[in-house]
């Protein structure tokens, strides 16, 4: 018993740097942010308790709902596109071919570029007058697009741009693909399954836990999207690319309404939990774990 306590003490001592960091820099701020969400707080004056006022204000805040709508609209576009493109690329890169390692590196490389740098590069690529993309379209006699400055085009453009960073997901899929037993493919081939059939009946089911993991990460990432639209459009035109995270940031650090921003952060967490909850709900039927 005494030895156990000693062992526990030592374990805690070694864990303490992380534990202290977790409690001080993660758990305490989370708790405090909930408290602030029930107050009017501008950083300088002591927080003034206002109960659920901030949450009620949010319900009547049209811009909040606009930003929420934009966030979900983006998620609905970026999520399936990202999953399909990354899975497709992973399947392609899993095929034996000359220079496969080089292709894999090329696909992964963009995800190593810092977000700010890639946003700056894309701003120039997408410039309607000077950009390379419109230049190519023009050479092909396809009408130029205004991309980010057009209210209708701005959001799809951002969703399209999000595909630039699929390299991480591709690597995870590739790792998952290595775990698919070859004998299942051979059996399917003997049964006369086509390539599509093999992917649909063997690869996808066995890769489903990895797909599910990427889905959850993509949901969280899409609901928290901030840097790219902040740099590229600043929410415009006419708030068409104004996301929840941007409204939260503006309220906290530009308008200095920390209480309101904290309430927004908790609502945002609720949205993430809801969407991941729905994903988990369907995971029982659609996700197959090997050996179960």
């Amino acid at each position: 018993m005494k030895r156990d306590i000693q062992q526990f003490g030592k374990g805690m001592a070694f864990l303490s740097p992380w534990l202290v960091g977790f409690f001080v820099f993660t758990l305490a701020p989370i708790g405090l942010s909930f408290y602030f969400s029930l107050t009017k707080f501008d950083l300088l004056e002591p927080p003034k308790f206002v109960g659920a006022h901030n949450y009620l204000d949010l319900l009547n805040d049209k811009l909040f709902w606009k930003a929420t709508g934009n966030t979900f609209y983006y998620t609905l576009m970026a999520l399936p596109a990202g999953l399909l493109v990354s899975l497709g690329l992973a399947l392609l890169l899993n095929v034996e071919m000359p220079g496969r390692a080089i292709w894999r590196t090329i696909v992964f490389m963009p995800s190593l570029v810092p977000v700010v740098s890639s946003a700056m590069i894309w701003m120039w690529l997408l410039n309607p007058r000077l950009g390379l993309i419109n230049g190519i379209l023009e050479a092909l006699h396809i009408p130029r697009s205004p991309w980010l400055s057009d209210p209708q085009w701005a959001m799809p453009t951002l969703a399209m741009m999000s595909l630039w960073g699929v390299g991480n997901a591709v690597v995870i899929y590739l790792a998952g693909l290595q775990d698919v037993p070859q004998e299942l493919y051979e059996a399917a081939e003997l049964d006369g399954a086509s390539t599509i059939g093999r992917i649909w009946h063997v690869t996808i089911p066995l890769l489903s836990p990895v797909i599910f993991f990427n889905l959850i990460m993509a949901i969280i990432g899409a609901l928290q999207v901030f840097e790219v639209p902040y740099i590229m459009t600043n929410g415009g035109p006419v708030h068409m690319t104004y996301f929840l995270s941007m409204y939260l940031y503006d309220n906290a650090f530009v308008y200095l309404q920390m209480g309101y921003a904290s309430a927004m952060a908790w609502i945002m967490l609720l949205f993430v939990l809801m969407m991941t909850g729905v994903a988990f709900l369907f995971s029982g039927r659609l996700v197959h774990y090997q050996g179960k």
């Binding site: 946003a119 700056m120 701003m123 120039w124 410039n127 309607p128 007058r129 000077l130 130029r144 205004p146 991309w147 980010l148 400055s149 057009d150 902040y230 740099i231 590229m232 459009t233 600043n234 415009g236």
Partner: peptide, 20 residues
Amino acid sequence: LAEFRSGFSSGATGLFDTPQ
């Protein structure tokens, strides 16, 4: 006008501090 102005847009800050 939107098409013309879109040529100025190179992100939130525009082309203001660029050679263009």
